[in-house]
């Protein structure tokens, strides 16, 4: 295979990672943006999404497609509800103090991880994709004095992976529309900009926070559901995902949704491409160097606003 098709393949694989990462990291970024707290348990919410997807698909009949759609709806709802509960019972009582929230969410991280180990176990379990057709990708080449279409051997993507990319784009557009066009988005942004004044104008800021924390968690869980047909559910899968999300939000600017998405693309695509042409380790090294450079030269992130 020539270089061109190879690059195309690597880009597509990277785009799948970017899609999942963008979903997860925008949950983290939304929570920080509105509530000014960092949720260290965010990776475990992603793991719970994957594990609940396995539970749901194992117990819902009617074929892989029906079971998967059920998981896609039920898992983020359960995880979102758990997060709302954690917000009301724990974070609210800490008055969203940034340091104490970090400690509390570290505690939540271990509780979720260990409870999953005790109930679901230490196995990695797969979920059958709802559909998984191989789609060959055509390539154009100059031959006999004209452009010719041909189908390089090995250049293909599965329909499921394409679905992951499309689903992430749709959900992120939805979040963006919610924040910029809807009434609840207006109340969220007012609470973000000045929570005290927001409350003095009748906005139930505490309820808004609980909702935002729930939506952030549901985004992580959704990313988890989308990844299980590709990667299997395991109780320790949250750690790497959290690390990558932090890399993305640091580069993009914590709290900036647009920046988060651009950074997810940057990290996802470069990871895909560098892993294919060089090695996955080099991809991680470069991501880490990138984070260090951003922290030194632009600590607010590439797209982050001024500090508040």
């Amino acid at each position: 295979m020539d270089f061109g098709p190879y690059l195309m393949l690597a880009t597509l694989e990277g785009a799948v990672l970017a899609a999942v990462l963008a979903l997860m990291a925008s949950g983290l970024s939304l929570v920080f943006g509105v509530m000014r707290v960092v949720n260290v348990a965010h990776g475990e919410l992603y793991m719970l999404g994957a594990v609940f997807a396995w539970w749901v698909t194992s117990f819902v009949g009617g074929g892989p497609a029906v079971a998967f759609v059920a998981a896609l709806i039920i898992a983020p709802l359960i995880v979102g509800a758990l997060a709302v509960l954690a917000d009301i019972t724990i974070l609210k009582r800490l008055e969203y103090d940034p340091e104490r929230t970090i400690v509390a969410t570290i505690g939540l991280l271990y509780i979720m991880q260990q409870v999953t180990l005790m109930t679901y176990g230490a196995d990695a379990r797969p979920v059958v994709p709802p559909f998984n057709t191989r789609l060959a990708i055509p390539w154009l080449e100059w031959a006999d004095g004209g452009l010719q279409v041909f189908w390089p051997w090995g250049l293909s993507i599965t329909s499921y992976k394409l679905f992951v990319i499309v689903a992430a784009v749709v959900v992120l557009l939805g979040i963006r529309l919610m924040m910029t066009r809807s009434r609840i988005g207006l109340l969220m942004r007012a609470s973000q900009l000045d929570s005290e004044t927001a409350q003095a104008f009748g906005i139930p800021v505490e309820r808004i926070y609980a909702l935002v924390f729930g939506i952030g968690a549901a985004l992580a869980a959704l990313a988890g559901v989308l990844i299980v047909p590709i990667q299997q559910a395991h109780y320790l899968m949250g750690g790497d995902a959290l690390l990558l999300s932090f890399i993305v939000v640091i580069i993009g600017g914590l709290g900036s949704l647009g920046g988060t998405i651009v950074a997810a693309l940057l990290i996802g695509l470069s990871d895909g491409i560098i892993s294919v042409f060089f090695s996955p380790t080099l991809a991680k090294i470069i991501a880490t160097i990138l984070v260090a450079l951003v922290l030194v030269f632009r600590p607010q992130g590439l797209f982050g606003g001024r500090a508040r």
């Binding site: 009434r183 000045d194 009748g202 906005i203």
Partner: peptide, 24 residues
């Protein structure tokens, strides 16, 4: 309430700031 230092929702538009007052 008209707070000291105005405390507007700085990034929101005039219309959105007023909408919040209307929603109260």
């Amino acid at each position: 309430y008209i707070p000291q230092g105005r405390r507007l929702f700085s990034e929101l538009t005039v219309a959105q700031n007023l909408e919040i007052g209307m929603l109260t």
